[in-house]
Amino acid sequence: MSSVKDNVTALPLHPEKSTLEGKNKFLGFWFFLGGETVLFGTLFATFVALRHQTSGGPAAEDIFGMPLTFLSTIILLTSSLTSVFAIMAMRDNSLGRMQLWFWITVILGLAFLGLEITEFTEYMHEDLGYTTSAFSSAFYTLVGFHGCHVLFGVVWISTLMIQSFKKGITTVTAPKYYVASLYWHFIDVVWVFIFTVVYLLGILGG
């Protein structure tokens, strides 16, 4: 860890925004999330338009179960909190603590993905295949898109954390950590909407 100690001396208060490159990355990522919002917005709109088109297959209220999705929600919300802790640790220039919290975030993300896979397999057994109905296609596409985002986030944060052993917290790496946590918050927020629009409304049958 000796290479890391060299950086301990002078890290600015907000290392993620202290260089022009960092500022660019920060702003560019916000714009990217703006585009992602439209992406998910379009998927949501499509889902809402097709959510009652079950075409004789299972409907939302027949198959969605509260306990599992509620657990998923809790897990993902918690992971958002742990990524906040990681960024606080980064600002304190505490590499070990940042790594710890990010690794916890990754594990929670993996747990979420595990639950999602369990859930999807269960639905498959209840005859809700991808090609069953317009509702099933829209459901799997929307939730699957989100799942892919989670998977990408898990891989991304993991690779950053592996690199962090060598690179530490610097004005070059800090923007990367920060942006990754921003991404993680974003997919968390999207999940809150999925939980509400897809699952809660689905179970209520509204």
Binding site: L50, Q53, T54, T131, T132, A134, S137, A138
Partner: peptide, 21 residues
Amino acid sequence: FLIFFDRLFDANFFNEANGGN
């Protein structure tokens, strides 16, 4: 993507027979 899934993976977004629109 929706057209892509309809074409290659038999999704039903635009397939009226299975409730698409």
